[in-house]
Design a protein around this nucleic acid. Structure first.
Length: 471
RNA sequence: GGGGCCAUCGUCUAACGGUUAGGACGCCAGGUUUUCAUCCUGGUAAUAGGGGUUCGAUUCCCCUUGGCCCUACCA
């Protein structure tokens, strides 16, 4: 039975890298009939907040990633850690250390100068029981270190193959702080053991931590799970995509949501970062991903998170939505009142193909629903040979052509306008460009008859007249 | 400084040791269009460098270079 985990640290909003790691865990578990555990790794008391945990849970829901067990919180599992800590203590695999931060710092500096591996000197390792008792009696609280053996640690990583590291390069790491808090390396291992995790799928930043974890698993007498280390998500400059991207925007899931990216696009895009199905297909639903995903095909090299590519993916999914559905999704992004639902849907249809994200919609839809204001210099168009006087004549002609129109369909509006073009012996654009400007007040927009139809006859004529007055 | 990991167009990536090194995004050009966008056509652009192994290397090995990660009483 395969079992994986979602182990976020609730110290901030959900990071995109965290989301991707969870997605890969999800794909692996669901594709192999496995279970998923959600575990909040909140051992860092100062930085962890329940609000963040809630946000992460909401993010998972948004992406469509569900789990089977949890949420567990490490902050609520103290007794379990205590139990295993005592076990280690009894086995002599850990020892108390009373060294001060300054001492340790000096030690490290010295080692660096001498080109030695940065390891704890094990000064406190030699402490006799009575010395320990004495130090404790004097009010000093120790940290507890794991005694690292010198031999080689090896394991087979599902994506990176054989990995080996020499214990003599690894320092005796701290598993418990002086304030008695247990530290990450210890709690993950205990939890993975207790929760019977079979596959640990996580970011490459944990690759060199794995040796420590394996030592701990073995010291605890537990079965060592299988590891798979995912390539990191990178900024454009190939630095690790941490809290912020290179433009200074937060690299969080929440930001993608607020910029109007669809969850299906985010999932699709993230899945293809560091993995691909081996063919040229590029669009997948979550379900299809579950079917196609093979962890052996995950890459080793980091992948740059390129927003332009996400845009492309997002516009694909925006186009697949029905206009009704899209309108519903756009609503929260609008900053003006929309009273007429039908009109919104009609307008949305006109912009659906031009949309890269939901947030852009308000700019493209505004003129349909609000009074417009624009500058006269929008009218002249060099290529079209339109100046202000020509623009005014065009609006007058347009008004004349549409005033008496009974049938306010796109086809009828188009026919009336094109007839006018022929009648005046001018180019299409010489009539249509000024009308488009008068109707939208925008530089770019959908076509004249589409807009006119959605706007309605009354509003269209009104805007033409306003244009004429302006000129 | 110590250790680990990694390396194909700008980006995401494909290529049983044998391909004109393919696709997509972006970009550029042309076409369609009333503008922009869309759409269609075409183009640009890569195996980091050096040694091996081999009839033959993007692919296997070594070195160099570069990047990333770990090296916390963070996770």
């Amino acid at each position: 039975m395969i079992k994986v985990r979602f182990p976020p640290s609730p110290t901030g909003p959900m990071h995109i890298g965290t989301a991707r790691a969870m997605l890969f865990n999800f794909l692996f578990a669901r594709g192999n009939n496995g279970k998923i555990v959600f575990r909040s790794e909140d051992t860092d008391r100062e930085r962890s907040k329940v609000e963040y945990e809630e946000e992460i849970l909401a993010g998972l829901k948004w992406l469509g990633l569900d789990f089977d067990e949890g949420p567990y919180r490490q902050s609520e599992r103290g007794e379990i850690y205590e139990k295993h800590f005592e076990k280690l203590k009894a086995s002599g695999k850990i020892y108390p250390c009373f060294c001060s931060a300054e001492e340790l710092e000096a030690e490290r500096e010295m080692q660096q100068k001498q080109k030695l591996p940065p390891r704890y000197s094990r000064k406190c390792c030699e402490l006799k029981p009575e010395e320990i008792a004495q130090l404790e009696a004097s009010g000093k609280n120790p940290v507890w270190r794991f005694r690292v053996e010198a031999e080689e640690i090896r394991f087979t990583d599902l994506v990176r193959g054989e990995i080996k590291e020499l214990g003599k390069n690894i320092s005796d790491f701290v598993i418990r702080k002086a304030d008695k808090q247990f530290l990450y390396h210890f709690t993950v291992v205990v939890d993975d053991m207790e929760m019977e995790i079979t596959h640990v799928i996580r970011g490459e930043d944990h690759l060199t931590n794995t040796s420590k974890h394996i030592m701990l698993f073995e010291a605890l007498g537990a079965k060592v799970p299988t590891f798979a280390h995912l390539p990191l998500l990178l900024n454009k400059d190939r630095s690790k995509m941490s809290k912020r991207d290179e433009s200074g925007k937060p690299a969080t899931l929440e930001r993608l949501k607020s910029e109007g990216y669809l969850p299906e696009a985010v999932v699709n895009f993230l899945a293809l970062l560091g993995w691909n199905p081996g063919n040229e297909r590029e669009f997948f639903t979550l379900t299809e991903l579950v079917k196609e995903f093979k962890i052996e095909k995950v890459h080793k090299a980091g992948a740059v998170f390129d927003l332009e590519r996400l845009d492309y993916c997002n516009s694909h999914y925006i186009r697949k939505l029905t206009a009704e559905d899209l309108a519903e999704k756009i609503k929260p992004f609008l900053d003006f009142e929309v009273s007429d639902e039908k009109k919104l849907i009609a307008a949305v249809k006109l912009i659906q193909e031009r949309l890269k994200n939901l947030a852009e919609a308000k700019q493209q839809l505004r003129f349909f629903f609000t009074e417009i204001d624009y500058r006269l210099d929008l009218f002249p168009h060099t290529k079209m040979q339109v100046g202000l006087p020509e623009a005014k004549n065009a609006l007058i002609a347009g008004l004349a052509a549409l005033e008496g129109l009974e049938d306010w369909s796109e086809a009828a509006i188009q026919a009336a306008l094109m007839e006018k073009v022929t009648q005046l012996g001018i180019k299409n654009g010489q009539l249509l460009w000024p009308i488009r400007v008068a109707l939208t007040g925008e530089k770019f927009s959908p076509g004249v008859w589409e807009i006119a139809r959605v706007l309605g006859k009354v509003e269209t004529l009104k805007r033409l007249q306003q244009g004429i007055d302006k000129l």
